[in-house]
């Protein structure tokens, strides 16, 4: 099954709850990102490219699988843009089409760590196949 990449800014903004127009292009998300050098597109590019509607390259990127969902970008963004939520939204846009989760639900309980943010657990659930 081929990937439908005709997904618009509005859809990604709705899934993520992010308003990309709040960004003032300071780059603090990419400055703070620990996975920066593993990524082909960087956190600030996710914001700019989603705003422009340039979503296909992001859906095909390595970055959506390399993002650690550590939320450093969300924590430090001075304008509360929350780039990690955009990465998660694009990841979801890809995974939903794939039609299955990579982790089985029954595998989750034994892997739980109470220190982890809820969204990190959900994204891990979506991201990895064991």
């Amino acid at each position: 099954m081929s990937l439908n990449t005709k997904i618009d800014t509005e859809t990604i903004e709705r899934i993520s709850g992010v308003n990309t127009r709040k960004c003032m292009k300071c780059g603090k998300c990419s400055a703070t990102c620990p996975a920066f050098h593993e990524m082909d597109f960087h956190p600030h590019q996710f914001v700019a490219m989603v705003e422009k509607g340039d979503i296909e390259p992001l859906m095909k990127s390595k970055s959506i699988w390399n993002c650690l969902t550590c939320f450093a970008c969300v924590q430090r963004c001075p304008r509360d843009v929350e780039p990690a939520k955009l990465v998660e939204a694009i990841r979801q846009a890809v995974i939903r089409q794939a039609g299955e989760n990579h982790l089985k639900a029954e595998q989750i309980p034994e892997m739980l760590d109470s220190e982890l943010p809820q969204q990190a657990i959900v994204s891990a659930f979506r991201k990895y196949k064991k």
Binding site: G27, K28, A31, T32
Partner: peptide
């Protein structure tokens, strides 16, 4: 920038 050679870089400090 030009006479005193201060490096201006567009971007924020993350940490």
């Amino acid at each position: 920038v030009e006479e005193y050679g201060v490096h201006y870089i567009k971007g924020m400090v993350g940490k």
